[in-house]
Design a protein around this nucleic acid. Structure first.
Length: 438
RNA sequence: ACUCCCAUCGUCUAUCGGCUAGGACACCAGGUUUUCAUCCUGGUAAGCGGGGUUCGAUUCCCCGUGGGAGUGCCA
């Protein structure tokens, strides 16, 4: 029997990462087994379902590289089918009509007697006594089908073989299994994924930081988020962590998914994102680099392509989040930049530092050729003259020409800026902080 | 209150009865001709508690404890 799985989000608001992870496991499972990955939009809550939300679900799937095998299904189109199923249950005595609290008549599913059991791919056989569950409303008094009914009926008609969803559905699943049986349908396999929780062990929400897929699109690669989320609960069993999609598809195994909740570690995510950025071909990285700077208001249209190439190349190996790019590189493209005052205080305002910097400026301005060797020669002679270590001059110069304390390799930095810029920036810095020292 | 699920370093995890408990992120130290980052090497750091089964339990069972979920017209 060929595998058929589905991702069934309810389109209310933005797509939560917990949901997205369910999509990932479904997709991975389908691809690993050469099966079908389907999407069903559960938009029966018409008050809260919006076209925007539907679009954001589909966008998120696309961004994360999850292709859908058949046409997207909308649950709201299928109410008649759900109601027909309710009629069948009524006819056969599995359900009854009731009027509670004067709201009108609703249809209630009668829980069976005895144990309800099903096989969970992660947790093994799960059992619950039907007597511990109350009867279930399956059609509201306004005539609309309830989630439980719609979900089960649709899964039956879509031929779903494996229901892979969040841990929080386990209680529902016991009820759903009873429904499958009453509807005389074969019960699919189930897999209940552990939840993503915050540091307090509560379900991860937007209060805990970025919780929606959209929150990550600026800073992270879709591949990195996919990899990161897949690793939250699953591991291939060996020590590999940075994986391409193909590797994950090849090694994915539901039986190796953990059944306990996991917390997001954003530092690890940053690291993983950096790893995936390095796997990116340069021209793709460059595109992203340019758009990131331009959306931060830095105009690159007048800038020489080679200069952009140069800076992008330097940054390719050292980017962890795309959002930090403007702050880290804007000084390459504009000569108005601001100083990180904390670092100024720490380095530039120390006794003698400005004088050393001024000497470096003079030395560099006198160079006939501006390359790594001549720069080093210049720094060394200043170091001797000022009786400091050469290494102490590097951060001073870096700060003077960029305003910040971190960035590309020192020599690449100066060469990319060029002698003229370097000298004038050093001069400007000295003038700015003259007399401000200790 | 009841029912169900879960429990290894700070975090993500490996282990499917033999463990000197492995890896990754983070952290600390050192190295990569002195800056930043990357990278490399090393280090600190874990089996919730109590019983039981067993020659042997992190691994199996039970009881606690802690966390999560559910308990009729949200999904």
């Amino acid at each position: 029997m060929s595998v058929r799985v589905r991702f069934a989000p309810s389109p209310t608001g933005q797509v939560h990462i917990g949901n997205m992870r369910a999509a990932i496991f479904n997709w991975l499972f389908a691809r690993h087994h050469g099966g079908h990955f389907l999407v069903r939009i559960e938009d029966t809550d018409r008050e809260r379902s919006t076209p925007d939300a539907i679009r954001s679900v589909l966008d998120a799937l696309d961004w994360m590289g999850m292709d859908i095998d058949e046409e997207v299904m909308y649950q709201s189109d299928r109410a008649q089918s759900h109601l027909d199923a309710a009629e069948r249950l009524l006819d056969r005595g599995y359900a009854y009509r009731e009027n509670v609290g004067g709201k009108g008549e609703c249809v209630v599913f009668r829980m069976p007697t005895g144990p309800v059991r099903f096989q969970d791919e992660l947790k093994g056989e799960l059992t619950k006594n039907a007597a511990d569950m109350k009867d279930l409303v399956i059609v509201r008094s306004d005539g609309s089908p309830v989630f439980h009914l719609a979900n089960v009926v649709d899964d039956i008609e879509m031929g779903i073989t494996h229901v892979i969803r969040g841990d929080d559905h386990i209680e529902n699943t016991y009820r759903h299994v009873a429904l499958y049986e009453a509807l005389e349908a074969s019960v699919p396999r189930f897999a209940h994924l552990p939840m993503i929780v915050n540091a307090q062990g509560k379900p991860y929400s937007k209060r805990d930081g970025s919780a929606f897929v959209g929150d990550f699109r600026e800073d992270y690669l879709g591949d990195a988020l996919f990899n990161f989320l897949a690793l939250l609960g699953w591991s291939p069993g060996d020590d590999r962590e940075v994986m391409t999609r193909a590797e994950m598809v090849e090694h994915f195994d539901l039986a190796k998914v953990k059944s306990s909740a996991a917390q997001m570690d954003m530092k690890k995510f940053d690291w993983l994102n950096g790893q995936h950025i390095r796997l990116l071909p340069f021209d793709e990285y460059r595109k992203r680099f340019v758009s990131q700077l331009e959306s931060a208001g830095i105009d690159l249209s007048q800038v020489d392509d080679e200069h952009v190439d140069r800076v992008a190349t330097m940054m390719h190996e050292r980017t962890t989040r795309f959002n930090e790019l403007p702050e880290l590189t804007s000084y390459f493209f504009t000569d108005t930049y601001s100083y990180d005052e904390k670092i100024v205080k720490k380095r530039l305002l120390k006794t003698g530092a400005l004088d050393s910097l001024a000497s470096v400026g003079h030395g560099l301005s006198a160079l006939n050729t501006f390359d790594s060797e001549s720069i080093d020669g210049c720094l060394e002679s200043v170091a001797v003259e000022r009786e400091v270590k050469t290494g102490q001059l590097f951060p001073l110069v870096r700060l003077a020409v960029s305003g910040i304390g971190r960035g590309p390799d020192f020599h690449s930095l100066l060469l990319a800026l060029g002698q003229e810029q370097v000298v004038s920036r050093i001069g400007k810095t000295v003038a700015t902080y003259q007399g401000a020292g200790e």
